[in-house]
């Protein structure tokens, strides 16, 4: 490919409107979620500059209106460990008025998703304005991004399985982390998980099953939920599994209020 880096930016971002090429965003398959982070973290949800992520939804501030931001829309969907962003791109046209954000720890992958979204916005004016991505460690900093009860959907698609028992604490679904996910989700919000690793599928299901703030979504509901189909078809990882004829294991749960018997 002939690279005309007129912007001098990232190599994959040569021409505006052109989708970035993954080969320029090679990254390790794994990243250590336990290590101290060296990227900027917002101090609190109020500190996140969402206007920068969703310029279309945040009209330029009118200086004479001090409280204009009070009505600004909030992110409602979070794709945790969004990888190359396939799900976000798939969800965007389904919920054009809902803001969604992907969270990814590997910075090159995040760069790719950023460039991909910008390219999509360029070539489809008015579309894909509702998706964006942040580089962060969601296992440590979820409450720094979202307020209590802010999210209506959370996605955990094909997370790192961390087979060794010693490394189970690195899994993105755990009894302790579910407390935090429950905190940022509204009552009635839905958490979607899928994996091609049976052992991890069992783990995620049992964590959710045993958590008092989550309740399984019924099979009938799953069939009518348009999002469920995307879980295995929209992401790069899901397509790879489908290509190889692999099995997938879903667990979809709803955030419920605590009822102490």
């Amino acid at each position: 490919m002939s690279k005309d880096n007129n912007s001098g930016a990232h190599p994959g971002n040569g021409q505006s409107g052109r989708l970035p090429r993954k080969r320029f965003y090679r990254a390790r398959a794994h990243s250590n979620p336990l290590s101290d982070s060296h990227f900027p973290i917002p101090l609190s949800p109020a500190d996140v500059d969402y206007a920068h992520h969703f310029p279309h939804f945040f009209a330029p501030a009118e200086p004479d209106r001090g409280n204009g931001m009070a009505l600004s829309p909030k992110v409602r969907f979070a794709d945790v460990g969004c990888g190359f962003g396939g799900l976000l791109v798939g969800l965007s046209p389904l919920f054009p008025d809902t803001l969604m954000i992907g969270m990814e720890l590997r910075d090159k992958v995040t760069e790719y998703v950023k460039d991909r979204i910008l390219a999509l916005r360029d070539s489809n004016p008015g579309k894909y304005e509702n998706i964006s991505v942040v580089r962060t460690n969601s296992m440590k900093y979820i409450p720094n991004y979202f307020e209590k009860g802010q999210l209506s959907k959370m996605f955990f698609l094909f997370p790192d399985p961390h087979f060794k028992e010693k490394n189970h604490r690195r899994r993105v679904i755990s009894p302790q982390l579910l407390d935090e996910y429950a905190y940022v989700m509204e009552i009635g919000g839905v958490i979607y998980t899928i994996t091609d690793v049976e052992e991890l599928g069992d783990w995620m299901r049992s964590c959710l099953e045993e958590h008092p703030l989550f309740e399984a979504v019924s099979e009938e509901e799953l069939e009518t939920d348009p999002v469920v189909k995307l879980l295995s078809s929209a992401t790069e990882e899901g397509q790879k599994v489908a290509r190889n004829g692999g099995q997938t294991f879903k667990a979809v749960y709803r955030r419920v209020a605590l009822h102490e018997e």
Binding site: L43, S44, P45, P143, N144, K148, P175, L178, D179, E180, A182, Y183, H211, P212, L213, L258
Partner: peptide, 14 residues
């Protein structure tokens, strides 16, 4: 059975 319900996070320290 665990303390699962988070009342709040107090964030602001640097």
């Amino acid at each position: 059975k665990g303390a699962h319900e988070i009342q709040s996070f107090c964030l602001g320290h640097t």
